[in-house]
Design a protein around this nucleic acid. Structure first.
Lengths: 103, 103
DNA sequence: ATAATTTGGTTTATAACATAAACCGCTTTA
DNA sequence: TAAAGCGGTTTATGTTATAAACCAAATTAT
């Protein structure tokens, strides 16, 4: 009978990270974006970005394609349906914490 | 001449924490709340809550008053103006990440 | 040619953080 | 008066974020 009175839904820990959230925020608005572009938009270091992209990719929130632009390697990222849904749910959950009405 | 193109404002690390944010979210809506109430609303363990309240208090985002309710100790928390401002700014900053229009 | 620099990343070492477990003093109950 | 419960705090540990170090390929300078 332990009524826990849980008012706050837990926040998806994969998205509750400044850099990963910024990456998702970028990807949700475009068809695709490459590593260099994301790096410039977020101001992140390459190492940090590499790690965080790996994590999002391991969870299938994004998919990563390695190709070439001319002779240079190019890492292209796209958000997946799973990622889109997770992002949307994260936003709704967070609204509760931020006192923003749902919708 | 290194144009960094910083699109994303940094998120206040003190507020970008699930439990601390929940605590602030509670306190912003009430005059005051005690430890036991906050614990029940958040579902946090006492240890975790104690630590996070200390951090918010050390930054003067909240103020903590230790009194008695009858013979039992009672830890009362209130948000400060500094905390209120920090929370408001955090919300506005986060809206950018979440693609929610300002306001 | 080849040495030095830059580009586009990955790997790894470390610092910061969140969390639970263990603990403590006081109070209530058995 | 022993045992259990309440209201917390302290500390130990696992997780996470982050930067530093590194690497291969490409470009630029000598």
């Amino acid at each position: 009978m332990e009524e826990k009175q849980k008012t706050f839904k837990p926040l998806d820990p994969l998205l509750h990270s400044e850099l990963r959230l910024a990456v998702m925020s970028i990807l949700i608005g475009v068809d695709e974006a490459d590593f260099v572009y994301i790096k410039s938009q977020t101001g992140a270091t390459a190492g940090n970005l590499s790690v965080q992209i790996d994590k999002l990719s391991a969870a299938w929130y994004i998919e990563v394609e390695k190709t070439f632009r001319g002779k240079k390697t190019c890492t292209i990222c796209r958000i997946t349906d799973k990622g889109r849904n997770a992002f949307a749910e994260y936003v709704e959950t967070l609204k509760q914490y931020l006192q923003i009405p749902k919708g």
